[in-house]
Design a protein around this nucleic acid. Sequence first.
DNA 1: CTGTTAGCGCATTCAT
DNA 2: ATGAATGCGCTAACAG
Lengths: 343, 343
Amino acid sequence: MSKKNHWTLKSIAKELGVSNATVSNAFNRPDQLSKSRRESILAACKELGYFGPNKAAQSLRRGKFNIVALVLPDSIEYMVSDPVASSFMRGVASVLEKDGTNLLLFSGNSDNLNNVVDFVDGFICYGRPRNQSLVEQLKIVPKHVVTVDFDIGRNASVNINNEQASYEVAKHALHNKDDQVAILGLRLLDQNVLCRVYEHHECEAGQSIAHQRLRGYQKALTELDIPIADDRIWNIPESSERFASIAAKEALCSLPRPSVLLCMSDLIALAAMREAIKMGLKIPEDIRIVGFDGIDEAQRFVPKLTTIHQNSEEKGALAANLFITKEEQKALINYELQLGQSS
Amino acid sequence: MSKKNHWTLKSIAKELGVSNATVSNAFNRPDQLSKSRRESILAACKELGYFGPNKAAQSLRRGKFNIVALVLPDSIEYMVSDPVASSFMRGVASVLEKDGTNLLLFSGNSDNLNNVVDFVDGFICYGRPRNQSLVEQLKIVPKHVVTVDFDIGRNASVNINNEQASYEVAKHALHNKDDQVAILGLRLLDQNVLCRVYEHHECEAGQSIAHQRLRGYQKALTELDIPIADDRIWNIPESSERFASIAAKEALCSLPRPSVLLCMSDLIALAAMREAIKMGLKIPEDIRIVGFDGIDEAQRFVPKLTTIHQNSEEKGALAANLFITKEEQKALINYELQLGQSS
DNA sequence: CTGTTAGCGCATTCAT
DNA sequence: ATGAATGCGCTAACAG
């Protein structure tokens, strides 16, 4: 007898003439019934086209959803084309996929965690979300949270030592006190504008990645006794070719012409190298350029970029593992100074 | 009186001394109660820390989940770093984000749609999933499905005319019957191997993108009366730098040396250009190379690549729109022949 | 306009 | 080893 094509645990149990608990157990708790019974039930279900308990109902009942929301710093559409974010997602995805956990992409522009909080097991947050109110919500949300590249009050996080890394790459790019230095910063300011950063007094206090990196640069500058003028630091609001090119052009045209360009991302450094080449400058003879991130394209570029290679994929994998194991750990991940011909 | 921190519709209703339907209505159906009543209830809820009906329960009840699964052709970790797939996802995400629909990434390697089918509203499938059994499931799954770059029995799909596009770009690359042509194909064979494709008899029948493109190439070749030897077509199993470089090297070293390289993706064409340059070949004097896709990196490369620009982002946006509106439409999307200096 | 009730589909006691 | 009952948290139909 073929009932309607849509079986439920209840209807299939009735069809088979057993109680629904038995069917449930057959699928979920093998130890609760005899092997033969279980197998005959499973076979009958398959035969009839019942593929197992409804996941939504199961989740509601158990309070477990097998979905984790990956909270991106910005809109999904923006993040998905960012090479560093992509690597990170790759690491996350590889671990979650093995674990059978589903990955939901969540925009850092959303204004409410509530839209998803009820059907995810928790959150992996890659960088501070653009919408600050999300941060506040993440602090108190009653689910598991792993933060990456920033911290909130919670205990599971993955970071790299941005200050030390920046210090190292700057140290490599800088030669002596006669160097003319310009810094192309990424999101140094909250304001969404491309401009120079005349005031950076609060840098010591700044907790953002950009400020950590800036501190690293400054430490290197200070050690070499290199002054940096107030008008030699740029703020680029997002890691895009367009903004980076404009800022690079401004920097390269500023006088005295910089001999060193410290860039807070490889994408920025690449744009800067392209602009420099267009202007007929020789790299590194006329200008030394260093980046941050270690993306593939920058390694393939001629000249190869000197940069800090962040192990983004590993970062993602670690974050996902922390999530799965629910370990409360503040992890610090390695980076590598990657030497190229650009400095 | 502060109850436990976890409110439910029921508990909050009791706390407020109203029925649960009233609270539900306050959140979902403003027209069902007076404005003042509604507002006072909402205010009280906010005050007490109840942020609205539990979404999981709501979804179970309504049968609507506000999640769509984006079925990728391959593993998530592989897809997320593919520039074409990323563009597509960008398009999808931009539309879904505006619609308030959440995006779940689903691997084309999974073997069971059942793990998610119960808590998504449907599927957007970007390319034929590597796991063929997923295709079978997609054909019969009782939810809305939009396919992209391939078709199943269902009625909503987005495609481009691969054959025509390939024909055009080949036509542009080919000059006359003395051209020596090699084809770097992407997933021409089911087998996951890098090799030459000696037999392509079944090309006429092949429905895959690769075969559609191959037909386009062959049409152009035929029109110009250019023969193509049996051993001049390569199969590259995935669009990665590594495989592409190997195949490109093989092709470039084969004798007589090709004067034209028809590549089924820009990533492949880029790898080929790099290998050619390494070998001291001049592009396009010694060898003309064309790609397919229109990714950014290929446009920035020197020489700029001649290719077919697929509007992947638009494709994604259209697919998402079809999904949302539930329109049953087989859409065909435009492409553009993008001329560079590589041919 | 408001409250009562019956499920959505299931997992888990607690009996037997 | 099995079955009846309860409720996860909610919405929609219905009754008042």
